[in-house]
Every structure is written in structure tokens, then in C-alpha cells.
């Protein structure tokens, strides 16, 4: 058994070939930043922040559509707090709210049930954004709304799945040597898909938790695998993540959602990564959003794929800042550009 101190020492003094490791999930990015992990490892190991922050990869067209709904009489849009400052093509939710749009911050999607019952004259539109961790909550909400005969709730979905996105990234960015995979989505999905990815792309995929220690051990595991020529799925979060995931949650997703291509802000459309309401639940569907790459000078895609540094984007720090973000990576506290911006002083 190796101690954390020894792991820190080995990661600091690593002098093998230069490695690029992507942490996929925004919560991992935040934990790496919070614990100062980049300072603790060898300059030969580069950590790349992947597209796993759902808020960051939500398109401007989606925000525009949600704001348009919030400005429609008798419509209220419910959203999580971190969506409020994401800009659409002209406004963020915060700015639209100041313009009279009815946007309310929710802490749990289930709040919609009480609101919908108390105000039958309003339609409550949930900005349903998130990955496999969040999607089952919306499925459960619908099942409760149906059971309770509530008709005035709708979902504006931009729900995404992460493993097909990783397949795409591995294919398009072969220079990435290994992946730190999100523990909480794996709680739902299980690890089988990650095993298949490891095998297909010959890269280590390591599922881990969100404490600094978890991430350091995952990086160490990836480095060791690479040094010994291995490319396997390792589950370092076994207390929470099981090989088959959460069957009940997966069944809910299958019952309510179809899989189709989804648009990722900064990247574009990726096959098999979107969850959209099935036809038979159309009465709960607030509509489909057609997204296109909105800002041609935004280089978020290249940042997220580790091809350029944030400061190499022409908009970085000028047109695009944390208070007025243009691109995916500046939007969230967890985005690579936001982190660079806040630390450049």
C-alpha cells in the first residue's frame, strides 16, 4: 500500500514522457483548482479540463429559447442557480429577469410540483440541463407529475450523456493519454461503458471521487498504467460506483427519453449524446432547440480538447470575461478559461 505522501512525491518527480490527462467533469476541475493540484505534479503531466460541466456546454440558442418562454405570458422558467449568468445570443437569464422575464431559481426540480399545483394558470418550464446524474431526477419529476395529474409542467431539455462524448473526444484527440472519469455519473451509468472505452482507445480510464486525495490517486493510477503499458478501467470509487450502475435510474431514463445527437457549446453536434423526451410525453415537452455554432471566434472547443491554452483565444479577457462570458469555458466557475482568468492577476 502506497501512502499519499509517496504518491505526491512520485507525481512531483515524474520525469517520463510528457502526458496529457483529461479530467472530464467540472466538479473534478473545481477540486483540482481548489486543492492546487496542478502545482503539486510534474510539469510533464498536463491536466486538461474536458467538457463535463453541463452549464458550460449549453448552447446560446437554448438560453434564447428559455428566455423567450420566460417572456411569454403565464410562463415561468425554473432553473438552477449556475445557469443564471450564462449568456444566450443577447442576454443571460439574470439580464432577462431584469427585463421582466419570469425566471425563478430552483434548488430541486421537485419544487415545480408544488408551484404547478398552487398556480394552475401558469406553465412551469424547467430548464432541464445536466448529465446522467441529473437526468433521472427529471424523469422522476415527470413520473410524479403524470401520477398526480399535473399538466402545467414542461421540460426544455438539454440533457446529455457523457460516455459517448468521451468516445468522440478519444477519437478526435488521440494525444490525450488518459481520462479521470466522473464518479457521480458513473454511480448511475456503471462502469461497463468506461471499460469498453479503455479497450477501444487503448487509454486508461479511471473513475474517482471528488476529494483532492481521490484525484491525486487517480492521476497516479493513470501514470502507473501508462508506464506499465496498461489501458484499463479502474474504479477507485467503489463505495459508490458499481459495475452495472443504478438500474432504477437507468430504467427511468429509458422509459422517458430517446437518445439522439446533441449540441455541445464550443464543440458542435455529437452523436448519441442527447436525451430527448419520447413522443408519447410530447405534452410535457417545451420544444426542441436547434443550435448552431454561434460565435465563430470562440475557441472553446479547442480549449476543451486541449489543443490551445485559454489565453490563445482571441476573445479571452477582452470580449469574454467571467462577468460577461461568451464561450463555454468562461461561463462556469469550473471552466478552464474562467479559472485562467481569475488566476492571471
Amino acid at each position: 500500500m502506497i501512502s499519499l505522501q509517496e504518491i505526491l512525491e512520485k507525481l512531483k518527480t515524474y520525469d517520463g514522457r510528457k502526458l496529457k490527462i483529461m479530467e472530464v467533469c467540472g466538479t473534478h476541475t473545481a477540486a483540482i483548482f481548489k486543492n492546487g493540484i496542478r502545482d503539486l505534479i510534474s510539469p510533464n503531466i498536463t491536466l486538461l479540463s474536458g467538457p463535463g460541466c453541463p452549464v458550460c456546454v449549453t448552447s446560446a440558442a437554448y438560453i434564447d429559447r428559455a428566455i423567450a418562454l420566460a417572456k411569454t405570458p403565464q410562463h415561468v422558467v425554473l432553473t438552477f442557480g449556475d445557469m443564471l449568468k450564462v449568456t444566450g445570443s443577447t442576454q443571460s437569464f439574470s439580464e432577462a429577469k431584469a427585463d421582466g422575464a419570469k425566471v425563478e431559481m430552483m434548488y430541486s426540480p421537485f419544487e415545480a410540483l408544488e408551484k404547478a399545483k398552487a398556480h394552475p394558470e401558469n406553465t412551469y418550464v424547467l430548464a432541464a440541463v445536466g448529465f446522467e446524474t441529473t437526468a433521472p431526477v427529471y424523469a422522476r419529476l415527470l413520473s410524479r407529475a403524470i401520477d398526480e395529474g399535473i399538466k402545467n409542467i414542461k421540460l426544455l431539455t438539454d440533457l446529455k450523456t457523457i460516455t459517448p462524448a468521451l468516445d468522440w473526444i478519444s477519437h478526435i484527440s488521440p494525444s490525450i493519454d488518459g481520462y479521470i472519469c466522473p464518479g457521480h455519473t458513473a454511480v448511475i451509468t456503471g462502469t461497463t461503458a468506461y471499460s469498453q472505452l479503455a479497450k477501444k482507445h487503448h487509454r486508461p480510464f479511471v473513475v474517482t471521487g471528488f476529494e483532492g486525495e481521490h484525484i491525486l490517486v487517480a492521476i497516479y493510477d493513470i501514470v502507473c498504467q501508462i508506464q506499465s503499458g496498461k489501458a484499463q478501467l479502474h474504479n477507485l470509487y467503489q463505495n459508490a460506483v458499481h459495475v452495472n450502475g443504478n438500474q432504477e435510474a437507468k430504467a427511468l431514463l429509458e422509459k422517458y427519453f430517446d437518445v439522439a445527437p446533441a449540441f455541445w457549446r464550443g464543440i458542435g453536434s455529437i452523436d448519441q449524446t442527447g436525451l430527448f423526451l419520447k413522443e408519447q410525453y410530447a405534452e410535457f415537452d417545451a420544444g426542441k432547440v436547434i443550435s448552431v455554432q454561434e460565435n465563430k471566434s470562440c475557441a472553446c472547443g479547442s480549449v476543451m480538447l486541449g489543443q490551445i491554452s485559454p489565453n490563445e483565444c482571441p476573445m479571452f479577457g477582452t470580449a469574454c470575461t467571467p462577468t460577461h462570458p461568451q464561450g463555454a469555458c468562461m461561463v462556469s466557475f469550473e471552466g478552464a478559461c474562467g479559472i485562467w482568468y481569475r488566476n492571471r492577476r
Binding site: C25, G26, T27, C53, P54, V55, F80, G81, D82, M83, L84, K85, M105, Y107, V129, G130, F131, T133, T134, H184, P322, T323, S332, F333, E334, G338, R342, N343, R345
Partner: peptide, 14 residues
Amino acid sequence: SLEILFGEGLPRIC
């Protein structure tokens, strides 16, 4: 570096 709060201190989705 510890930063001054940007925007509102709001709960994140994930």
C-alpha cells in the same frame, strides 16, 4: 489565489 466573488454565489448543478 483566492478571488473576489464573481457574480452571485449560487449553487451549482454538479
